[in-house]
Amino acid sequence: MQRKVSVKSVLEFCLGNICRSPIAEAVFRKLVTDAKVENKWRIDSAATSAYEIGSLPDYRGQTCMKKHGITMNHIARQVTKEDFQTFDYILCMDESNLRDLKRKSNQVKDCKAKIELLGTYDPQKQLIIEDPYYGNEKDFETVYEQCVRCCKSFLEKSH
């Protein structure tokens, strides 16, 4: 008799799904792969807005991730009603994302997702992960570092 593996799911979330959330998604994917628990997780990322649907992650984020040896394989998409019904966690980057998600989740029957700021898991207590879109490479590095801290802590607390 085969034992069924319990799968948890996390959706990383930001405004456009080209900067912060794909970085968080790739970081978390690497952490679960390194911990050899990738078969226990479903990981994705999405956006509030429709601005960037179909786009690749921002080239500065891709450059940052390559520097750290992390692969990014993501095409921007918008959050769906099904995401609220199928993901265990939706982790967003700032208060604006949180407000948008809570408003959308109120319109979904059977919302099972726990919606919270990814920064609530930061051991350094930096609650907000600022959007680096209008910034420079250093800002993307800051997002990466925050995502590593938060995702490590989230993974430790969630399994």
Rank of each mutant, 00 (worst) to 15 (best):
I23F: 05
D44R: 03
A24S: 15
I43K: 01
T120W: 00
V37P: 03
K67W: 04
C14W: 02
K66M: 10
I23L: 09
F28E: 00
R29H: 09
Y144M: 02
E137R: 12
S21E: 03
L91Q: 00
K81F: 00
E137A: 14
K81M: 04
P132N: 03
E95V: 10
S49H: 13
E52R: 15
L15P: 04
N73L: 13
C150F: 01
L155W: 01
Y134A: 10
E95D: 15
S96W: 09
I23D: 00
I115R: 08
D44S: 12
L98F: 10
R103L: 11
G69Y: 06
K66V: 14
K157S: 11
K109M: 12
I129W: 05
E52T: 14
E82S: 10
A35W: 08
Q124N: 14
S45P: 12
K152Q: 14
L118N: 05
T33W: 00
K8A: 08
R77D: 06
D58C: 07
E141F: 03
S55M: 13
K67A: 13
S55L: 06
I70D: 04
T33H: 07
K157V: 05
Q2P: 15
P22E: 00
S153T: 14
V32Y: 02
D100Y: 04
A113D: 01
F84V: 08
D100N: 15
K81I: 06
L98M: 12
N39F: 07
R103M: 11
D94H: 04
P123Q: 05
V27F: 04
C147N: 04
R149H: 00
R29S: 12
Q2L: 15
Y121N: 05
S105M: 10
S49L: 09
Q107I: 09
S6C: 14
K30M: 11
S49F: 09
L101D: 03
A47K: 01
D44K: 00
E137Q: 13
D83F: 00
F140S: 02
V37G: 02
Y89C: 06
E116S: 11
K157H: 12
E25C: 07
A24H: 04
T33Y: 08
L56D: 12
F13Q: 00
W41C: 08
S21H: 04
K157T: 12
K30Y: 02
V148L: 11
L15R: 09
G61P: 08
K102Y: 06
R99T: 15
L101C: 11
N97W: 05
E145M: 06
A47C: 11
L118H: 02
P123F: 08
A46K: 02
T86F: 04
S49Q: 10
K8C: 03
E12G: 02
D88F: 01
A50D: 14
Y121H: 14
E52D: 13
K66L: 10
A24V: 10
I23R: 01
T142K: 14
L127K: 13
S6K: 15
E130N: 12
Q78G: 06
M72G: 06
R42S: 14
L98W: 07
K138L: 12
L127W: 01
K81T: 15
P132A: 01
K4H: 07
S105E: 05
